[in-house]
Design a protein around this nucleic acid. Structure first.
Lengths: 107, 107
DNA sequence: CTGAGCTACTTGGTGTTACCAGATACCAGT
DNA sequence: ACTGGTATCTGGTAACACCAAGTAGCTCAG
């Protein structure tokens, strides 16, 4: 698949929030989760800044947990503000998505 | 509706190409076309740079036509390269769109 | 005990993009 | 003259994905 970077703008943050909704998680694992969902090309350099951003916007709560292998993990948990932002994200996504479907149909 | 700017990254260029596929068109009218399709907040300052970009990438052919009202129009026409890029865009869009639908479903 | 290899996070810089605000210009009707 | 709709261009901003590289902890083979 070609370069998706522009189309992913704003989308990945929503995807990460949705992944966190399924349960607390940490960066490295979130990258793998995104990869396994089909966003194979998404890498650490993309995901970690998103997590920093989410923390700065106070949409997630952060705690450090020690790992059996490797350095300690920063575990992210969706908080109420994050859940609200996630809902708002899906509203925006559905809006754009519906409009694009319409444009595509109208020959 | 909230701020869509990030979600529109990369999307609007595809939308403009699709609009041009329906027939030759000029900037001012393309803005109105986008507005009437549901992207009400998209304005001239957004669309004109896209058109300049499409021209620079040689995805469209440009000709100047005199208008009955107002200054001459720059009429844009989709060329073969543009049609190919449009097809590639829809591929990318469908890819991302499908992935997001999947993420949204997986509770 | 040393190095390879996986885990895990951080940092600095780049390019692309939508958007805003304003300027310019042409023409019609009042 | 002036207002208002048509039509394009310019300069600057902020946000985002991405890249490349570095740091650091732990396990296991040799």
């Amino acid at each position: 698949m070609d370069d998706l970077t522009e189309l992913l703008k704003g989308v990945l943050e929503g995807a990460v929030l949705q992944i966190l909704k399924r349960g607390d998680n940490y960066g490295y694992e979130i990258v793998r989760a995104l990869n396994s969902v089909g966003f194979e090309s998404v890498s650490q350099g993309t995901v970690y800044p998103i997590l920093v951003r989410l923390e700065k916007k106070r949409l997630v709560d952060v705690s450090t947990q020690r790992s059996e292998l490797g350095p300690p993990r920063k575990v992210y948990a969706l908080n109420p503000a994050g859940a609200a932002e996630l809902a708002a994200f899906w509203e925006r996504w559905d809006f754009v998505s519906a409009r694009m479907a319409q444009i595509k149909e109208e020959k």
